[in-house]
Write a protein that binds this DNA or RNA. Structure first.
Lengths: 224, 224
DNA sequence: TGGTCAATGAACTAACCAGTACATCGGCAC
DNA sequence: GTGCCGATGTACTGGTTAGTTCATTGACCA
């Protein structure tokens, strides 16, 4: 164990090998962020324990404070990281190339699937809402990312109205809210809902059914 | 100040005056419950502080432990108290007397209004979901109350289908989920949503618009 | 080859917070 | 009026937890 010397990397090739991560600050940060995301999304801000995050990391508590300052700033970093994910993906959908009905269907399906596949994301937002979005309000980054989502939807609506397949007054924000609500709730309230109604909402079958219902609901609302 | 003696109540009428609350255990319990509800719904289970609840009470921390045992049992008591409210009210709607469309409209409107008027209720459920419904699962009371809600909706659906105003396969649980999701989200995600989209979702005008949208969404989904 | 600085480890601390010990008070039954 | 018991106040404690102190390591550059 004690034989492996760290600095033997640039013995032969001393150019692009790029520090063979004997030390790897970026990696450490990403590691902390990933672990913190889990802990915060499972327990909420107050419920999460810095010591537990540290323990699940390949580094130490000392490093968390070194890179992120304090618990709250770590939490905000997690939040920004997570919000970045969905909007980034959303851009790859190329909705402007599809006909309006197809575009809307794709967007709803994507939102539903994404939220479902990213429970952490959903839970962090729930937690944020319990704290009146106190942290999110402070992050310009996040607000910018999300506001863009409305523009895409608005373009779909306009095209659909011109083609006569969508009703005439159709508020993009309202529609976005409906799409979000139906996708979000399916994940956010899964625990209480299935505890009460004894239905397993996580099986592929149940998800497929619900997904179809959600798409149908949105399309019926958008049509003339 | 020190002149007011407590026991001067039954001087004249010693029958039904009902202990002039020199000591009032039930009142104290209700007081604690009300304060705890606020604290838990604002901060979540872990974020809430027993000391703060005690301070906002007209009694002391000692009494909280005397009546409720510990923080968790106090939390469960709050949860049961709050869940009781909505189902109790729902019963007063007399939906079976209305024609199916009217009945469904009324139910959706009621749900939307109730959730909107009871932010505490919504937040407690969010918190419960963050903890995987750990507490709710333990409460038979709550599960019973809610399961009943589906029956009412199922009756409306059946009547509507017979009258030909609702589509033929129409899953009550799915429809209930849609109604809940749209009503719930409007309150639960208000903070993050309005932070991002800069819309105030709490003005009477905004609420009225959204309320109409939600009713419309549900009805369009239910119709053939 | 020694100086410098980012990166890191281990142990510590001060505050906080759920829960308790102990003593007391006051209404009610007899 | 005395004894009992539910109800209550005050002050404390033991464990937990965010954040810190101090010392060290190793890479890189001059």
């Amino acid at each position: 164990m004690s034989a492996a010397r760290p600095a033997d990397r640039s013995a032969v090739d001393d150019k692009p090998v790029r520090a063979a991560r004997v030390q790897d600050p970026e990696g450490v940060k990403r590691d902390i962020l990933a672990v913190a995301r889990k802990e915060f999304s499972r327990k909420g801000f107050s419920g999460a324990r810095v010591d537990q995050i540290a323990a699940a990391t390949r580094t130490s508590k000392r490093m968390i404070y070194y890179y992120f300052g304090d618990k709250e700033r770590l939490y905000i970093a997690v939040l920004e990281d997570v919000y970045g994910g969905i909007r980034e993906l959303e851009k790859t959908l190329e909705l402007d190339g599809l006909d309006p009905i197809q575009a809307l269907t794709t967007l709803v399906a994507f939102t539903f699937d994404y939220q479902n596949a990213n429970v952490d994301f959903v839970r962090l937002i729930m937690n944020e809402n319990i704290h009146d979005a106190a942290h999110l309000k402070r992050s310009r980054v996040i607000q910018k990312m999300n506001a863009g989502a409305i523009d895409g939807l608005a373009r779909i609506i306009t095209r659909g109205q011109k083609a006569g397949v969508f009703r005439k007054p159709l508020d993009p924000i309202g529609l976005h809210m409906t799409i979000s609500a139906l996708s979000f709730f399916n994940v956010s309230n899964r625990a209480t809902f299935s505890a009460i109604f004894k239905t397993d909402m996580e099986t592929p079958a149940a998800l497929a059914v619900r997904r179809a219902q959600v798409i149908d609901t949105v399309l019926r609302y958008a049509r003339p």
